[in-house]
């Protein structure tokens, strides 16, 4: 199977930019070939379908990436089968009365409320154990995720550009500032490319 990005996107019913976004976020593997001759295969198609099903269940993208990354093509196929079935079950809730439907939402809310099982914590490397750990959190409102939905701008209309300069090093630029400082940012990236050996191609 050899698909162009447009064919892949239309088979699954998502905008092309969503496919590009998933690739840049490491949710989908890169295509074979580059530029105009880039092609996508069954692996891309199945993974993209699975991602869309999980997104539909409101699974965060980060979680989807972690869940799908270690899976083989066969495992992806199996999981897609299970999830498709689950989606069909969800569709059956469409038959519920308004009262029962809201009861379902309440139940789901209570399940989410229960604290998730915690994974055993990784031992902290000795050298850092004395230092206060302040995990880096990205500011809440910047969104880099192009939404498959028409954007509901109610949750902040800000557009942020993001470049990964090296593993764990990112440059975040708000949309309007991007246009203001474009040349400077280009120079910064030039330096980063040189210093970090950065070879990202997100423009």
């Amino acid at each position: 199977m050899r698909l162009t990005i447009e064919e892949l996107a239309s088979r699954v019913g998502v905008p092309v930019r969503t496919v590009r976004y998933y690739i840049s976020e490491g949710l989908l593997p890169r295509p074979g070939g580059r530029g105009q001759s880039a092609t996508y295969g069954e692996e891309h198609l199945l993974r993209l379908r699975l991602i869309r099903l999980l997104v539909g269940q409101r699974v965060p993208l980060e979680e989807i990436r972690q869940r799908l990354a270690p899976l083989s093509l066969e495992e992806v196929r199996a999981l897609l089968g299970e999830e498709t079935q689950r989606a069909a079950e969800k569709e059956r809730t469409e038959e519920l009365s308004p009262r029962d439907y809201i009861a379902t939402l309440l139940r789901q809310a209570r399940v989410r409320e229960e604290p998730p099982a915690r994974e055993p914590e990784a031992p902290t490397p000795g050298a850092f154990s004395a230092m206060p750990q302040t995990p880096y959190r990205r500011p809440e409102s910047p969104r880099t995720e192009p939404r498959p939905e028409p954007r509901n701008l109610l949750f902040g209309s800000e557009e942020w550009h993001r470049w990964e300069l090296a593993p764990g090093v990112e440059l975040l630029v708000r949309g309007d500032s991007f246009y203001r400082f474009r040349r400077l940012i280009e120079r910064l990236l030039e330096v980063a490319r040189h210093e970090f050996g950065y070879d990202g191609d997100r423009w």
């Binding site: 308004p98 009262r99 809201i102 309440l106 809310a109 209570r110």
Partner: peptide, 16 residues
């Protein structure tokens, strides 16, 4: 959230 949903559930009927 739960308070609000409970209100919606209270006023919801068996058919729309």
């Amino acid at each position: 959230h739960q308070g609000w949903l409970t209100g919606c559930q209270a006023i919801a009927t068996d058919s729309v």
